[in-house]
Simulated assay, not measured.
Amino acid sequence: MSKKPPVPAENQSPYPIAEPPHDHAQDNETVAIVREMAAAKQRRVGPTSRQLGIGAAVGVGSAAIVAGLLFWRGNRKDSK
């Protein structure tokens, strides 16, 4: 037995007290767009630490090659 007193039909609210159950669609258009935007944002996050390390190694290596070419004296004999 409930503790609520009975309410006459004239005094009952025309609005529902509890929300009716929803049928949840798995993939509607909005959910698909939001998931696609989240995946795109994840791809644009930025370079990883591994990519930064590889970039630094390539930069240092190319600087060393350029310096070696600039200061290479070839097979010259010293004139002194």
Rank of each mutant, 00 (worst) to 15 (best):
A18N: 07
R50V: 05
A63I: 09
V60H: 01
M37R: 09
K80H: 10
L70H: 13
A38Q: 09
A40W: 01
P5Y: 10
Q26M: 06
P20I: 10
P8H: 15
V7Q: 03
R76C: 02
L52R: 08
P16H: 05
H22C: 07
P5T: 11
R50P: 00
V31R: 12
P47Y: 06
I54G: 00
Y15A: 07
G55H: 10
P5Q: 15
L70P: 01
Y15M: 11
A67K: 07
R73C: 02
W72S: 14
N28S: 08
P47H: 09
A38E: 11
P20Q: 13
I33V: 07
A18V: 08
V60W: 07
P21G: 04
I54L: 07
P47W: 11
G46H: 03
G68A: 12
D23K: 08
P14K: 08
V34I: 13
A38S: 13
L52Y: 02
G68I: 07
L69H: 08
E36I: 01
I54M: 10
I33Y: 01
S2C: 07
Q26T: 12
K4D: 06
N11S: 10
V31H: 06
V58Q: 01
E10K: 14
I65Y: 11
D23F: 04
N11G: 03
A64H: 05
Q42E: 14
A64P: 01
Q12D: 02
Y15V: 05
G59Y: 01
E19Y: 03
P14G: 04
P8T: 14
H24N: 13
A18G: 02
S79H: 12
G53W: 08
A39T: 04
F71V: 05
A67D: 12
E19T: 10
N28K: 10
Q42A: 15
S62E: 09
N11M: 12
S62Q: 04
I33G: 00
V45Q: 13
A25N: 12
D23H: 05
R76W: 07
